[in-house]
């Protein structure tokens, strides 16, 4: 499988990039690390006339800390994020999530911004052109019906990025820059929940993700766990991120954010489960209640080779496990 033909544009600065996004809106794709995009192009999931490369935008790389905030340039590689001493020390959950993406051969190229922009996946969609020609195009590929659910005009493709759940749990914000200027929004608002266009810019919008900001004070502990069928290469069957703010070690939970990947058309926050913990001590019965609630809050469909009830079971188990570990609670 060869790549389709395209024009390759390599703007030198952010200021040059935005007008190109405008000019070629709807017929271009932005390439950061390229590890997901190139596969999608080979499979002819997209055939853009233009590829706009961000590789020259040095300003969008790097990690720094100021005023209780860690700022990460979206072009920082996942390997860079997972290996950065600052991240390992202050945001180990993020380091873990970045380290668990794909395989060791992808992480030196794949970027954190690209991972946040990861397109939703589905066993009927992430296939070659030939494969897909065996049936009507699905909703996500521009057709009418979702082959997973047989519903019309609805796409149930699954978001399966590893990094977003952690960043949402950490209450990260992102900066988007477009022709109208820039805007800052909480990361969770970046995701639409619409499988066809799962985030605000993935559909070819003329905006660019330029910064990721993570407040350090939002939590006292954060952890990410990924369940996949093999320890490398695979996407998560389920990934769970939890950030807790405890008033003291093993103390009362002031805030709990539980965010799950692999179970819906966006990173799914189990808000009710988080509320179940808030104001509570780290006791087994509250943890159990929170994990049960989290499992009830998700609605996975069969978009990969694993069944929904198995995913729900994993969420129940993993949420409880993480909270116990963060809360210092013995089994």
């Amino acid at each position: 499988m060869r790549l389709p033909k395209f024009q390759y544009l390599e703007p030198a600065t952010l200021a040059e990039t935005i007008p190109l996004l405008m000019e070629h809106q709807g017929r271009s794709k932005v390439i950061a690390g390229g590890t997901d995009l190139l596969v999608a192009l080979k499979q002819r999931l997209h055939t853009p006339a233009y590829l706009i490369s961000l590789s020259n935008l040095a300003a969008l790389k790097g990690i720094r800390e100021e005023d209780g905030m860690v700022t990460i340039g979206p072009l920082t590689t996942l390997e860079g994020v997972s290996a950065a001493p600052l991240i390992r020390e202050k945001l180990p959950g993020l380091a873990q999530a970045a380290w668990e993406v794909g395989s060791p051969l992808l992480r030196p190229m794949a970027t954190i911004g690209g991972n946040l922009c990861l397109d939703n996946r589905c066993r009927f969609y992430n296939q070659s052109l030939f494969w897909r020609s065996a049936r009507q195009p699905c909703c996500k590929a521009g057709g009418k019906v979702c082959h997973v659910t047989n519903k019309e005009n609805a796409c149930f493709s699954t978001y399966s990025g590893d990094v977003a759940p952690v960043l949402i749990a950490l209450q990260a914000e992102i900066k988007l820059v477009g022709s109208q200027g820039e805007r800052i929004l909480p990361l969770e608002q970046f995701y639409t929940g619409d499988g066809r266009r799962p985030n605000l810019i993935g559909g070819g919008e003329a905006e660019l993700l330029t910064e990721i900001r993570i407040p350090l004070s939002s939590h006292t502990g954060c952890m990410y766990k990924k369940y996949r069928l093999r320890d490398s290469i695979d996407f998560p069957v389920v990934g769970v991120a939890v950030a807790l703010r405890l008033d003291q070690p093993q103390g009362i939970c002031r805030e709990a954010k539980i965010v799950i990947t692999g179970v819906g058309s966006r990173p799914v926050e189990a808000t009710q489960a988080g509320e179940k913990l808030t104001g509570r001590e780290m006791r087994p019965e509250f943890i159990l209640a929170a994990s049960e609630t989290a499992a009830a809050e998700i609605h996975p469909v069969r978009t990969d080779q694993v069944g929904p009830s198995f995913k729900r079971h994993l969420v129940r188990v993993m949420v409880a496990e993480i909270i116990r570990e963060l809360g210092g609670v013995d089994r």
Partner: peptide, 18 residues
């Protein structure tokens, strides 16, 4: 009759950690 996992990503043969 359609093969849903025609790739090393989805056909899971053992990796080194296994």
């Amino acid at each position: 009759g359609q093969l849903f996992n025609p790739s090393f990503l989805t056909y899971r043969l053992p990796l080194a950690p296994d």
